[in-house]
Design a protein around this nucleic acid. Structure first.
Lengths: 138, 138
DNA sequence: CATAAAGTCTATAATTTTTATAGGGTTTAT
DNA sequence: ATAAACCCTATAAAAATTATAGACTTTATG
């Protein structure tokens, strides 16, 4: 399951996508719309900005706005950013690799091999679904 | 990512699959092979038995053994049993459904729709990969 | 039939991760 | 000058995961 962080990030991105015309959107408005803690959401938006998905404007009249096209924001990226690995095991993670302590030899581990396949197929799904798809479903 | 519980369960099932010929296998042996806590693994094997994957024999000379064919143990089942939902959000979980607090109306939520598709495609993968596939990779 | 080996079961402790809050900055429109 | 708004880091609270403990039951065997 996705963490609340990632889920909230998706809601925020969706909100920003829907309100693109308005220029900037307040954290406050997104938080209120979904009943999310303002401060918690603030941290999430900050991460999304640092990762290059959002722009922000400080000071009075400021706020956040999308700086990427919705079609260029795949679920895989958002999940990796906020939740970490997409792979089911650290030993097959492309971006967060770590050996598994209980596994003596990865090269001959059937679990490792199968999980690498699962990762590849899962990635195909999550790289193909984008914010655009979410927006089209609203 | 899978919890250690699920990961250990997969190691245990694999071990049992490999040692099928020996009749029964001791918790102790599996735990030792993978450096897993005996007591932690004990709880996991208990769950696998209650779920109908394993049989056990008590007393001296006892132990655990597979009672399902490896090809009839899909990853999806093991993951659901020990980790819970496969869906990325509670609002699209088939087996552990719960509404999402921050979502006013599921029927018009684009995130919900996309995640339901992701769930279906993910399920296809995890229902197709079985213990058999793991064993063939060892 | 006593004993030791092995699984059963439930409770609780320890640890880690996630979620949430707090509060003092800095920037900017008016 | 002021208030609105994002920026940033630290810490607290809560929840979930991981691990341990210990008493109980079953069974093979000498």
């Amino acid at each position: 399951m996705l963490s609340k962080k990632t889920k909230y990030a998706l809601h925020a991105l969706t909100y920003l996508g829907k309100h693109k015309a308005e220029g900037t959107v307040l954290i406050h408005d997104i938080a209120e719309e979904h009943g999310i803690s303002h401060k918690f959401l603030e941290n999430i938006l900050l991460e999304l900005r640092k990762a290059g998905y959002l722009g922000s404007k400080k000071g009075k009249g400021g706020g956040y706005y999308l700086i990427k096209e919705p079609k260029d924001i795949p679920l895989s990226r958002v999940i990796r950013l906020l939740d970490g690995p997409i792979a089911l095991l650290p030993c097959v993670s492309l971006n967060y690799y770590e050996p598994c302590a209980e596994c003596k030899n990865e090269a001959i581990c059937g679990i490792n091999k199968v999980m690498a396949q699962v990762r590849d197929e899962t990635l195909k799904i999550l790289e193909n679904k984008t914010l655009q798809d979410i927006l089209e479903g609203e």
